[in-house]
Design a protein around this nucleic acid. Structure first.
Lengths: 143, 143
DNA sequence: GGTGTGTTGAAATTAATTATCAATATCTTA
DNA sequence: TAAGATATTGATAATTAATTTCAACACACC
């Protein structure tokens, strides 16, 4: 299961940095990996609090930052909406079509675009690690 | 000159919304359009202040929001860095290669990628308006 | 030029994130 | 497995960024 792999990566990162694993850290990690696609800090806080009501807000932030550093999460911020955190390892990579009218996300992948991106990077003597593509416009319903 | 066109678009937008043009608004517009690629709120504030030292910070924010609404500016936020505002009309569209090590931006364009993006959107019955592509990795110097 | 109302600057407020600190928990080593 | 060094936690304070408030002002339409 992919979740276990993600957990292993996180625990490895923690250890490598000379940090320690804790009950709270594991709880947050598990909830994050069990959440859907894109979660806000508040949503994560609420979900974790249901399992462990003593957990603090600052701890959520601290550990989200670790997840970012470990490459397991990525911040996505769209317009004036709240920052969301997206899983990077659990889910397949995908790009976003974002409707300017209703705010709906459509997740897409196109192998050819991915290839061209890599080629483009290579031309500039750049080693690509990951990317983010957001196409803004109007969805089926709103156009 | 492109700058004049951008100004016209902004003035039109202002009028259409039933808003008014002001000395400060024009000043901010001009400084924004004269700035390089990506400017932070503070940088813009400092530059405007040199021309008109009485201008307030809130006015910068208010008018940046108008520039966003009018489609002349776009927010770009990378990692933990300060939000930057990019010109949308003055400059040709381009994507970004962003170095994870030194933070350098490389601006790129690839016609083929642009075309594939439009085709992808069309397949999903989505009408694309604009897009943002950021490729993260390591630049020539850092890889 | 007068007038209605949008805009401004300054300060207060809100929202989001980070820092502080004493108490506690973890991990290593002996 | 007990001890000790130190990272982590929760609560709160502090910081940062962006927005709101409000009285004075200024723009645009007449």
């Amino acid at each position: 299961m992919k979740k276990e792999e993600a957990k292993r990566i996180f625990r490895q990162y923690i250890k490598k940095q000379g940090l320690r694993n804790t009950r709270q850290r594991e709880e947050i990690l598990d909830v994050f990996l069990s959440s859907g696609g894109h979660i806000t800090v508040d949503e994560l806080f609420d979900k974790v609090k249901k399992r462990d009501s003593s957990i603090g807000y600052a701890t959520i932030h601290r550990n989200l930052n670790l997840l970012l550093e470990a490459g397991l999460a990525e911040e996505i911020k769209i317009g004036k909406e709240k920052t969301r955190y997206e899983q990077m390892h659990m889910r397949e990579h995908h790009d976003h079509l974002i409707c300017l009218e209703c705010g709906r996300f459509i997740e897409v992948v196109d192998e050819n675009i991915e290839k061209l991106q890599n080629r483009l990077a290579e031309e500039k003597e750049f080693t690509p690690v990951r990317h983010k593509l957001e196409i803004y416009g109007y969805c089926k319903k709103c156009r």
